[in-house]
Nucleic acid binder design. Sequence first.
DNA 1: TTGTATGCGTTATCAT
DNA 2: ATGATAACGCATACAA
Lengths: 340, 340
Amino acid sequence: MKDVARQAGVSLSTVSYVVNDSGPVAGARRARVLDAVRLLGYTPNESARRLRNKSTATIGLIVPDLSNQFFALVAEGVEQAAAEQEALVVLCAPEAIDRPTQYYARLLRSQRLDGLIYLPGGEGMTLSLALELAEAGPVVMVDERIRGFEVPSVVADSRGGARAAAEHVLALGHTRVAIIGGPEALWTSEQRMFGFQEALAGYKVPLHSVTVRVGDHRIDSGASIASELLQGPASARPTAFICANDLMALGVLKHCRALGLAVPGDVSIVGFDDIPIAELVTPGLTTVSQPARTMGQLAADTLFRLLDGGECADVSSPLPTTLVVRDSVAAPDTCATRTH
Amino acid sequence: MKDVARQAGVSLSTVSYVVNDSGPVAGARRARVLDAVRLLGYTPNESARRLRNKSTATIGLIVPDLSNQFFALVAEGVEQAAAEQEALVVLCAPEAIDRPTQYYARLLRSQRLDGLIYLPGGEGMTLSLALELAEAGPVVMVDERIRGFEVPSVVADSRGGARAAAEHVLALGHTRVAIIGGPEALWTSEQRMFGFQEALAGYKVPLHSVTVRVGDHRIDSGASIASELLQGPASARPTAFICANDLMALGVLKHCRALGLAVPGDVSIVGFDDIPIAELVTPGLTTVSQPARTMGQLAADTLFRLLDGGECADVSSPLPTTLVVRDSVAAPDTCATRTH
DNA sequence: TTGTATGCGTTATCAT
DNA sequence: ATGATAACGCATACAA
């Protein structure tokens, strides 16, 4: 910048004025400065700028990992909204790197980020951790809520979606159903479980015919739970799996295939999220669609509004979810002897 | 920091010495400082520190988008390696946000990042752009190479993998094969195409029986190319699709299903990448496995070594790829009249 | 071993 | 309309 000033024969302040156009400057001089900038290839040093300004034009994004396409889509949404504000996003994927989220809490705080978008996974999601993160700056949550942690949070209608999914299978006449819930600490897990229960109650399914298990939202847990539940005699095992997310549903599907069980002939499966793979598997996975990318965008937008406006726009009402019906659900096989 | 100094009754430099332990300081004083730090919840201001030091402990990562799991895995690898160095990574996904990579070139340069990891997509990958990026600092490439752009690049053995894949289908007796290549500007596209050709030559497949098309590495292009190529009479259309990546392979799989064509009964399909979904679809996709996560890690490690050592460890030799055989490939249906 | 003083690149406040 | 200058928070060369 000094060089630019010298080259253009003006003072530092003048240069500053023109690059930010934050001050009055005569046409001729402005042109000279601009030329010098181009000539010297000058780019403002953001570190210095931030030191002065206090704003870093950078937000942090914490997602469990990127392998789950749902998270990847949320990340893309955040990235997109950030780009519109000329802001940068630093990526944190605690579960992918096998470090506690707390590690990032320290790191992010020292970076003086403008704010944080937080999508907690099953692991160490506690109030105290959230509070610690909040010390790094304003935070808005996506896809989750933490009781006692009063920040804006962008969520979808997990409960309604879950109910719709469960009703869809129940309406077909299934009675022996297995429910695979998500990690218990999560708000979404709770909501979806509520939704499932509501549907169960509505269809007056006897409690003893439904099996409930808890998974960790990953493929393997779906597969291993399926393996546990599917080993009884055909007449006793579940005819339908209702899963709290797609990955677990895919795990069930995978295991069914390994067992030679037909889907949906022998067992029906529903998932939740509608990640891109859902329509690619065979049979296509019936699932509940969440606007992942939009959720990311909305969260980022909320954060930015919160940052410069101060006013926290209300985003408390859940975004709509919709059941998308593919081929992984059918009426239960009433002729249970067909495999004999 | 001033506060900490006052609280501990020492000078600024002493505080600086203990937090970085970059200078000698008596045990008692050190303890007092540490206490003050804890008491006041002091965290160094990174902006100031960077301004002084020149190092930002932050690298940039450019991947086309995150929807492609291959890219997501690479990103995870980078993230992991960065975490080990206590470094941050800022995420750039040009295609996801529909902006030219050039947009990031500006942004990143002004951020004074320590370095850059660049995984170019099909879009605007030109030498001049790469050069522009290089002005932001040292860059190492992943999964690609640009002629004339002499930076370390971590790649896998695309050519060998491609040949193995093609040979696998050719060995089964396919003669009418379709090849779907990647975007032409890409080095990987070129390499894979070489590999395919080598296999073709080895099996003396007559040129007129192979159809070559170029896709954009996304699902839709696979589907639309399949739709174009599969509309002829059964006796004329390809019995096998050899694709430059998994997403396109999934696209043709999807289209086959829409057409009611059996895979691998009517048409065989091979992909490239071995992204996690590949084993989930039905039938499981035969494909070539690339160590995506490792590539990301290696790239980041190389960048860091290049940053503080200066010496650029040689990473030019491609990582091994391996053919993973699942169920999407079978011998061609010799009884071509079966659909009549 | 500890403190003082200077500069990193910007922006903003003040004179001019 | 323009320029000198202080301050942002930290690290270090140097003096003590």
